[in-house]
Nucleic acid binder design. Structure first.
Lengths: 122, 122
DNA sequence: TTTATAGTTCTAAGAATATCGAACAATAAT
DNA sequence: ATTATTGTTCGATATTCTTAGAACTATAAA
């Protein structure tokens, strides 16, 4: 039985609980942090997948056989370095590479790294 | 007083003590190791200096106010990742960037990274 | 032969990283 | 309301990294 007061309280609670995921500003991105984030094989692989697929949630990355808390950690490192952006859609977290901003700050870095990664020995 | 026997023994001793510094083969260089080596500010700065100066010994890098053992460690990391080559000339260790080999294995990576590094905020 | 030079290697300490499982949180579905 | 989904966050552990000082090594110079 929902009276108007209950609806109001529910709305406030929802608003307060809305998760805000912090992202660094483009101008604050640091080259060393980006390189460090990319230097881990798991994360480099994530970035490659994200670039290939456009954007997607974490479920695409179960092939790593790593715990989901571990994957969450890697996504966090990528986010804090400025490599990816995360938005929440329902219960899903949608990730995408901040390609334009990265290209603007560090021209050629992402492209050359991923090109080399693609033609590595399998 | 050097007789021929003394000269011979001296030669053998010198030969045995000749330091062989191991370097990874070009084909064995790994992208993640290179990125990891470059992701440290000290090492990135070393690479930049080496590229600017051509080749040089460690004494150019005293401005870091780091212990020489620490610098030696960073040069070792750079060497083992394949980023630099080290030869011994007298008591000096001469370092140089393996630019051609890196460009061949990872085209554009070194250039784009150092370009971004050069125009970072001071 | 002794001393100086230029660096390496060893050892150790503290910080940072990668990983996991358990507990938790927000939304969606029933 | 309860349960399911999709993750995050916390706490712990094992490993790696950065740094430094002390001892050492090979060559050069006196």
């Amino acid at each position: 039985m929902l009276d108007s007061y209950t609806v109001f309280v529910y709305f406030i609670l929802k608003e307060n609980n809305l998760k805000k995921i912090p992202h660094p500003r483009k101008e604050d991105l640091e080259l060393c942090s980006v390189l460090s984030a990319l230097s881990d094989p798991v994360r480099l692989s994530i970035v490659k997948e994200l670039l290939g697929r456009g954007e997607c949630n974490c479920s695409f990355f179960c092939g790593f056989s790593l715990a989901k808390s571990t994957m969450s950690h890697h996504f966090k490192v990528l986010r804090e370095s400025g490599l990816i952006m995360t938005t929440i859609k329902g219960t899903e977290y949608i990730h995408s590479v901040r390609k334009d901003e990265l290209d603007s700050m560090f021209p050629g870095v992402l492209d050359s790294v991923l090109k080399s990664y693609d033609k590595r020995r399998k």
